[in-house]
């Protein structure tokens, strides 16, 4: 077990004096085994992204615990998080918004290497060359700015950047929802490869059932901030138990 999420809740206060409480995530528990791809599906606004933000330490949960490799990472400050940044990485939904718009892509790619001091025995340029080669990006393209490359290229680069830290867990937050089918295939291949070759465990979030079915071994179905059903992908796809899951699966159009 690489990651365990226990009774996680996030409550937002709004309205007059914060008296209105909204449960974005409500008592969610799941675990991810070593080397597996765990899928999280649900409609937009059901709290999927809130969960990823809490796992990444970008948001403090109201209740519950997140345990990564037997260490509780729920309430760490920025400094305490530092060593875990190397082990948990994320790929965001909107690839062009992932990089610093004012700096060229080389700067963004060199950033993790500089921060974590990875270039001790190898020089930085060689490391970056090695890292972008895997995803089919040339050094020429690194001189450009984020808005000058296509969405597919940006997403491949952000995967390369995440993998350059050799993480144990990769969180993929709707990595292909903004991309075309043909570009999507390339991204999915890279993610799958990272899982099979390097044994990176994954939390894969998507609303696209087709992608989820192709990628994940186990899935959880979310609705209104709660997990309503979880199990092996094949079981849920062939034999859904919850009404909502059945409804969700009926939107799957086979070709």
């Amino acid at each position: 077990m690489i990651l365990e999420v226990k009774n996680l809740s996030k409550q937002y206060s709004c309205g007059f004096f914060g008296l209105n409480k909204i449960n974005a995530v409500n008592n969610v528990s799941f675990y991810i085994d070593d080397g597996e791809i765990f899928g999280l599906i649900g409609e937009s606004g059901c709290g999927k992204t809130t969960i990823t933000r809490m796992i990444m330490g970008l948001l403090k949960p109201t209740k519950g615990n997140i345990i990564f490799e037997n260490e509780n990472i729920t309430r760490l400050n920025t400094k305490q998080w530092r060593p875990f940044r190397k082990k948990i990485q994320i790929v965001f939904q909107n690839p062009q918004m992932t990089f610093n718009p004012r700096r060229n892509l080389y700067f963004s790619c060199a950033e993790p290497i500089k921060i974590h001091g990875l270039s001790k025995d190898m020089n930085e340029k060689a490391m970056i060359r090695h890292m972008i080669e895997r995803v089919g990006i040339t050094e020429e393209q690194l001189k450009k700015f984020p808005h000058e490359i296509s969405g597919g290229q940006a997403q491949r680069l952000s995967i390369a950047r995440a993998l350059s830290l050799k993480p144990r867990l990769l969180v993929c937050d709707e990595p292909t929802s903004m991309l075309d089918v043909s570009v999507q295939a390339h991204i999915l291949k890279l993610i799958k490869e990272a899982n099979e070759k390097y044994g990176v465990s994954m939390l894969f979030i998507s609303h696209d059932l087709e992608v989820i079915q192709a990628m994940c071994s186990r899935i959880a179905v979310m609705k209104n901030g709660q997990i309503i059903e979880t199990g092996y992908t094949n079981e849920i796809f062939n034999n859904p138990k919850h009404e909502y899951t059945k409804k969700l699966l009926s939107s799957y159009i086979k070709i």
Binding site: T78, K79, F92, N100, R102, E111, I115, R161
Partner: peptide, 26 residues
């Protein structure tokens, strides 16, 4: 709240370097 600030945090930037490298130039 921009996504690339989140991305910068997850890479392991400290608050100071985010302010200097990301917010300040913008």
């Amino acid at each position: 709240n921009a996504e690339y600030i989140d991305a910068a945090k997850t890479i392991g930037n400290s608050n100071l370097s985010i302010i200097l490298n990301y917010v300040f130039p913008n």
